[in-house]
Design a binder for these strands. Structure first.
Lengths: 125, 125, 125, 125
DNA sequence: GTGGTCTAGACCACA
DNA sequence: GTGGTCTAGACCACT
């Protein structure tokens, strides 16, 4: 899987990393249990610092998406937890929805986008 | 319209303010052309620093949601611009979609949520 | 409150910091809502790096012991959450108990120690 | 005696092993002088690397809990040394006590837990 | 002024 | 080899 980082973006680098890995999993580019590159390797490949990669991995671990095995490396978890707080997602969608609709995105475009996402991530049950 | 700020949240206070005003507009609680409280007033009401409110207003103006007229005060814009960058919204939705689905939110819940939002913000064309 | 760090100890510095702050709160040396030193200040005072202090603060925040307010500083939380996992504490006590008893600590010493702790931390309800 | 290792836990595997053996001794599941499985055997049974088991055995020997005799194998010691450093135990209990109490564990629960441990490990003098 | 992020390097503990 | 921790110094975002 290819990771691309934009160091000038407003979103912190470690957040970009987290997002890309999550999307990678959802799209099936990263399978459950599959090994992720070592912190050093990923840092080298993407031109960022090991600490930054580490921070991203730690957060992904905290969210339950990956497993970190001491001195054996890191891999995608084999099971993901269930959110206890769907309300948070709803709130975030609400903000996005409100702003985008006011700026000219239509109801139908939203529905189309969701349909696209369902297809891109069809491996999800 | 009631503004509620969570000082402990990770999102910056001025961002919370912006979000709530945008949602207020989308839900019809704030009409086009309607006057907004003065910076000072809003700061007082919500217990936020004047500078912070100001920053939020400036950003809302930059996004085209409000108009700031010297001596006349601030009011909701009468027309909103059209985004030139729908891709940004799509990307943000993608991240939310991926993470939420992996954490147990279903396709149908997403559709239901979108339908709810359409209803809550039915004034939108 | 005085923080003392042993850079040679086996426990990581940030863990030492966390432990001392937790004990400080339990002993009443740090009151609920009381301000903690800024990351820079604490780093300077104790001769450790700001990143290390930051890591300790972040973990204390995650555990619910402190509140971090952007650009206003950090303070002891006004309310602490209730553990959902008492089992983890029981397990840790079990290990300590087993090892200490095998190495000559008596039942009565344990009871005495607990009584001492109750007194040192009598502010706890 | 059954050894169960959690490879995802933060505690190093060799520490988990040490802890379980110490608890086993304290609970009377392993008697003084009793033979322990060979490094190879235990590694095989528990799915751990031989080196890791070895490290655990070496540390248990250093603490005085087991004796390693060339060609005769490994067995539980017949006598355990007395700690010279009870202060270390007190300090560790203090941390556990402080954190657990702040997170809602009561005085009485502590006493109850200690009583339980006394019963589970009643073979101790 | 505060915390949040990031870098380039380093050393240690684990398996 | 892996991840875990730490440093010294830097720049940015927030209030």
């Amino acid at each position: 899987m290819i990771i691309s980082i934009d160091p000038l973006a407003n979103t912190p680098i470690y957040t970009q990393l987290i997002n890309q890995i999550i999307i990678g999993i959802a799209e099936g580019k990263l399978k459950k249990g599959e090994a992720l590159p070592s912190t050093r390797q990923l840092a080298l490949d993407s031109g960022i610092n090991t600490m930054t990669v580490n921070k991203a991995y730690q957060e992904l671990k905290a969210k339950g998406f990956i497993e970190i095995h001491r001195s054996e490396g890191t891999k995608v978890a084999t099971n993901f937890p269930d959110t206890t707080e769907k309300e948070i997602f709803k709130e975030q969608i609400k903000i996005l929805y409100a702003e985008s609709r006011l700026l000219g995105v239509s109801k139908d475009e939203w529905k189309e986008w969701i349909k696209d996402l369902e297809n891109e991530m069809e491996g999800l049950k």
